[in-house]
């Protein structure tokens, strides 16, 4: 147990589609957990990274203050940080709000949208503040590897992790690299 590689995962401004795709490695998960132990992750419900994580997989871009804190924690605690999927790499679908002023986005969703009752912009102090623009994660911290795709296929996760576990530089063949 002590020798297992520690993997942490999180979804920032993502849809969990990349996590779902990761789980699509199906029965290979059994082989994987012989070699890795999941640390902070939606799969384990562990809230914070251990100080000695080996690999951090980040899905989604950065859209609010909590995302920034989470991303910085991952960078601090993980030896290798990986941007997983289109949103982590270029902001993706959530970044399409970047072309509309934030105030207008909030007004459309919470004040003037169809079917809105008791219209007010949520302002509970527990809620993280939204950033002016959604940003890819490489603009906030240094990223070591990128797995493109929306989502990256299960085979991408498998190839990447098995390459790393074998101690070799991960290499994705042509068929595994897709931006869509």
């Amino acid at each position: 147990m002590a020798n297992k590689i520690k993997v942490a995962t999180t979804s920032l401004a993502g849809c969990f589609g990349c996590h779902m795709s990761f789980l699509d490695i199906d029965e290979r998960l059994v082989t994987l957990v012989e070699h890795v132990q999941f640390d902070r992750s939606p799969l384990t419900d562990i809230e914070h990274c251990s100080s000695d994580c080996d690999i951090g997989l980040i899905e989604g871009g950065v859209c609010n203050s909590e995302n920034v804190h989470t991303l910085r924690e991952f960078r601090k605690q993980c030896k290798i940080l990986v941007a997983v999927g289109a949103c982590a790499i270029n902001g993706g679908l959530p970044a399409m709000r970047n072309f509309i002023p934030l105030e207008e986005c909030l007004a459309e969703a919470y004040l003037h949208g169809i079917g809105v009752e008791n219209a007010h912009v949520p302002n509970d102090e527990e809620l993280p503040l939204l950033l002016d623009k959604v940003r890819p994660i490489h603009e906030v911290v240094k990223i070591d590897y990128f797995l493109p795709g929306c989502p990256p296929s299960a085979d991408v996760f498998w190839k990447f992790l098995t390459d790393l576990l074998a101690g070799s530089q991960p290499k994705l063949d042509y068929e595994l690299v897709h931006f869509d």
């Binding site: 941007a83 790499i89 902001g91 940003r135 590897y145 990128f146 994705l172």
Partner: peptide
């Protein structure tokens, strides 16, 4: 595999 530079948006 990535954009490397900051995005203009």
């Amino acid at each position: 595999l990535d954009d490397h530079f900051p995005l203009f948006f």
